[in-house]
Amino acid sequence: MSLKREDVLTILAQNIGIRGSAFPVASSALTAWAEGLGIRKGGHTVLYTGHMYQIIPFILGMQNREALMRSAPSWGMKVARLINPVINLTRVVTLGAAHPLDVLRYNRVLRDVATLLRSCGVEFGYLYEYEEYAGALPYDMGLDRVFLKHAHRVYKKLKGFGIRRLITVDPHTTEMFKNVYPEVIEGFDIEVVNYLELLAERWRPKVKGGGHKRPFVIHDSCVYSRYLGIFEEPRSILRRIGVEFQEPLLSKRLTHCCGGPIESIFPERAKEVAKARMEQLEPLGREIVTMCPICHLNLGAVKDENIQLWDIATILRDIQKEQGGNGNG
């Protein structure tokens, strides 16, 4: 049994309307990844996480507690809908739920992105606690009223900080700012570039020897591939650092979804879609490269123990370190 759609949508709309986030966790959990990196606050160009990587450990933690939520009486969710506007139930339900190793793993992806960008001379700031969720989930779910209000608020805030350029790190936030915001906000004039596009343009790593011989399997995100046309960039970057990778039959513009977009409403169906994708990937190798935190989460939920999933930024950074370099060659 899954949570009822009307409950999920109502709580989602409340969270966006009241707290500006689909998954409102503590601000300190959203900004912890940047600790010690010395990234300046604000500036004309900012690295924009959109909270997507940071919330995954909390979603994982909540999934572990879902059995408990499902065993609650049927009126439980009705009560939840009534009190959520006053008490942030997401915070309550996820309190202590995020595993520290998951927090480290997903925060590390963001640190790797920042380090990779710096290594090719890209300068950026970060909005820290002022950064907002872009609104992909309410938009996709058709919660138009709350989404529009949220998008205008976010844009006003970005303009207030004098932001001229956003460097995004995940496909969903990129799609929102690159294609959806300009459609719904008159005069939207902030440049949006994804970090994979920037790396493909500027990154010239030093490569020693014959490259990296671990056979990776590449999994494209639907949003990167079909919404944004970003699929050659990651391949170009991986080849540049000597990584060999296998292509599944369904890849690039024909990639197969991970099931993530319906996970919040139909978790069982989402798992079936993820299993179908894993069956295409697993025969090709035991190390799979993802580029999206949602893909990483959903494929991770159905993978065998002997399969490893890596975010592309972590692979690039690991190999960069193995090669003993930080900068462009």
Partner: peptide, 8 residues
Amino acid sequence: FSCLLCRM
């Protein structure tokens, strides 16, 4: 609401 919006 089951549609993934995956655009396949």
